[in-house]
Design a protein around this nucleic acid. Structure first.
Length: 213
DNA sequence: ATGAAGATCCGG
DNA sequence: CGGATCTTCATT
């Protein structure tokens, strides 16, 4: 059992075992399944804030996301990459879309498809919960606030690489996303892109110290 | 073949 | 601020 400290307050008793499997300790951990992701990318991005992302021995609360829509979004890979459009067509909701950016950093997205359109949710920051030692082995010893405070940092902390591209992880024995709560969601403009910056498609938990920048 | 662009991070 | 360093895609 891990007690999370958010904004100076001890708030959520979070189920967490040595095996890094979030499992029952009185509070049911509701695993997010396909229907959650059968909605618009912006909706999914907003509602993922506060959920627990579990990845092979490590986990963290999702505290920052960005939405990219497959149609009409010049910043989305689908806009200029036929391969990305094919990916959307050929893969099921919940599939990991991982790519190498600037030849250096792996970035993790989840594929979503709603009636209003398909797209991706980019995971931009996590608040580490379990496996912090493992994360530090990968990134070096540092303030836990900096471990996953960026899309490239969190993949390195969790050990996510291109090998995970195109894989289903929602229902894995060691991977998945679990419903959580948040202290309020702040919406703002996306970061680090050159096109369609004005869209307010970046979301983060209010007051959270683990977000990027 | 070759080149440009890119949803980042780190260090000076 | 600049460099690292690789993939995808378009152009030659």
């Amino acid at each position: 059992m891990v007690v999370l400290r958010v904004m100076g307050f001890f708030l959520l008793p979070w189920p967490c075992s040595q095996e890094w499997r979030p499992r029952g300790s009185g509070i049911p951990m509701e695993r997010l399944t396909a229907p959650f992701f059968e909605r618009h990318p912006v909706t999914c991005s907003r509602e993922l804030i506060g959920c627990l992302f579990q990845w092979k021995g490590c986990s963290g609360r999702i505290v920052e996301t960005e939405a990219y829509t497959a149609e009409g979004d010049p910043a989305c890979h689908t806009f200029f990459r036929p391969g990305a459009r094919r990916f959307v067509e050929e893969h099921a909701v919940g599939t990991a879309y991982v790519y190498l950016n600037y030849g250096v950093h792996w970035l993790f997205n989840i594929l979503v498809k709603g009636p209003g359109g398909a797209g991706f949710v980019l995971f931009r920051a996590l608040e580490p919960v379990c496996g912090i030692e493992t994360m530090m082995e990968r990134r070096g010893r540092m303030d836990p606030r900096h471990l996953c405070s960026g899309p490239g940092k969190l993949t390195k902390s969790l050990g996510i690489t291109g090998a995970n591209h195109g894989t289903a992880f929602l229902d894995g024995p060691e991977t998945g996303i679990f419903r959580g709560s948040n202290l309020g969601v702040v919406e703002g403009e996306r970061i680090g892109i050159s096109r369609a910056r004005e869209l307010p498609w970046r979301f983060h938990e209010r007051g959270n110290a683990h977000v990027s920048r």
